[in-house]
Design a protein around this nucleic acid. Sequence first.
DNA 1: GAGAGTTGCACAATCGATTGCGCCCATCAA
DNA 2: TTGATGGGCGCAATCGATTGTGCAACTCTC
Lengths: 354, 354
Amino acid sequence: MQSGTAPPSLKSLAAALGLSTATVSRVLSGQGERYRISRVTRDRILAQAHGSGLVVDQLARSLRLRRTLTLGLVIPDISNPFFAQLARQIERHARHRGYAVFIADSEEDAAVEAQAVTLMLSRQVDGLILAPVGTPGTGAALHALRQRPCVLVDRLLPEHSLPAVSSDHRQGAVLAVRHLVERGHRRIACVQGSPGTFANDERIAGWRSGMQAAALACPDWLIRGSGYSIEAGVAAAHELLQLPQRPSAVLALGNLLALGVLRAVREAGVLIPDELSLVAFDDQLWATVTSPPLTIIEQPIEELGRQVLELLLERIAGPMNDPPERRILPARLIERGSVRSLAPIPPASCNPSP
Amino acid sequence: MQSGTAPPSLKSLAAALGLSTATVSRVLSGQGERYRISRVTRDRILAQAHGSGLVVDQLARSLRLRRTLTLGLVIPDISNPFFAQLARQIERHARHRGYAVFIADSEEDAAVEAQAVTLMLSRQVDGLILAPVGTPGTGAALHALRQRPCVLVDRLLPEHSLPAVSSDHRQGAVLAVRHLVERGHRRIACVQGSPGTFANDERIAGWRSGMQAAALACPDWLIRGSGYSIEAGVAAAHELLQLPQRPSAVLALGNLLALGVLRAVREAGVLIPDELSLVAFDDQLWATVTSPPLTIIEQPIEELGRQVLELLLERIAGPMNDPPERRILPARLIERGSVRSLAPIPPASCNPSP
DNA sequence: GAGAGTTGCACAATCGATTGCGCCCATCAA
DNA sequence: TTGATGGGCGCAATCGATTGTGCAACTCTC
């Protein structure tokens, strides 16, 4: 409190008390008992520490301990609600465990991603959570791979064997297609994000799988779009609307794509769900106030965040040579108003919990 | 490259080259010329550094230099699109300047905020950007204030004289009210966020000011709501809809509140804009796909992010005793479809650029 | 009252990079 | 040969905290 101009440090506190930094350090780190520091001394130190508002320099501490209590999180787009919510969960859990989190936005650019990872590694983060840029074969993860614990989230990299957590993109798409098929839809189109991306390709695979399970054809011309942006969604939807054999339903593989589809549909004067049904990935706050409210595939974001952090901390604590664990969490269909029934609904269950 | 198990460090590189760490350090930090290191040696060092993928330990560097090239950002809710976009801008600009950014979510809780700030200060961030929790009189900023450069964004703290950047909340509200008044609305209600919060109160003040400029009464019962959540928006809107003298227009002071209003209105079977007009703060991607598309007050998020970072870096570079600068950026009204004209529009301009 | 055991704390090396100071060697003039 | 000059680089202290080791002083015990 009265330290005045001197920055409060462990050293200054020791001097003020006529003790050595060693003793102060041991008491402040809770090792007082182990080192048999007398209760009197302990109390004096703790009192002075609280009184002076001492905050020990984690920099020096980290240097010595080779442990920073700091994590890195690199995601492709913070302003994408899915990643924003994910980041929120991860940061929250990390904070509760005493970790601070560097967050960086890779802008879906491999070079930026590599730069961000390097920036974090140079600051000696204890571990890294990566939602890698879509384009495969990027080298960013390679550095992280060998140097620090690293866990992937949402998007896996097939070429690297890293621990990862994601939702079951494929099953989510299957769910959506089944829902549509059960309501009589036969020509179901896809508005995709970035082809080559794990999540996207898995969802496409799920779509195919769902279509084939219903003995429906799934020609490539039913798949449109490239990139997770509203504009891309608009363009893809316009293409689909102009097909001679217009699909009766669209599956949008991302929330921004869904917005694009909605915009295109409005521009074309097409009514949802009367003339076109829509199911979209990712639940969003606004999905209940569009007209109509959107039927969506919801990813368990909170659980994703919790588990990816847990997995990372395990890797940090334990030996690195464990086989990389992959956790796939189930997605869920939430029915609202954007799907029209073209036929009586068969008795099959439409949303089994796996 | 061949360092094998030894972590690549400045020291190991020096050993491999038969040089001292001093020389290597000077070359790698670009001081080779100043210290007259021969070109041959310089090239050897740089070649080896690139070859081995050396990343110098910023921890040790920061300890010595008393400078971490690290910033802290604390916002009330990362998943709120406004803050997510703001964080994105700030992080992007910081990265371009070589800074890494800790981001924390204070959950609109003063205790969490204080914890997050302490976590960052202990890690010796060079500076802090704070969108402080609404409740006034919290002490979090007090610590930061005296210890490190700190700049506020979006929400100012009247009781502390800290540099700050925000949009002109008051003028934004005036803009909205004027727009509504010009279209014949006389009873214009407010769905507010957290009373006592700077942004909220400024917007309320703007609403009053706009109403009074049009010689309209602004009784307190036209102001509803507490808290920036969808649920709060729903509740406030329901209250307004049940008033004996129902307002003809609502001004929602936040994007989540707007969603709440939309939901409540839908539940009540009220049509926008036919039976109720709506203007909301913050532009959002989904604001164009609601029915109807929302007329909104847009804050210059990109510019906010750019300027707050710039201001912080100025404080870091320069002396701290400059008078705290405040930059207020103009807001803008974007007309879409959620306002009904009750009267012929007078010739007055409705969206002057200040 | 001397040796054994215990209590309570300090010394100093260490983490990895930075930097003021100064040493060594080569060259050149006298 | 000697002294002066300057180029090229190393020594060692430093940033602030951690921790193995060791050393006083104090308490027991016979």
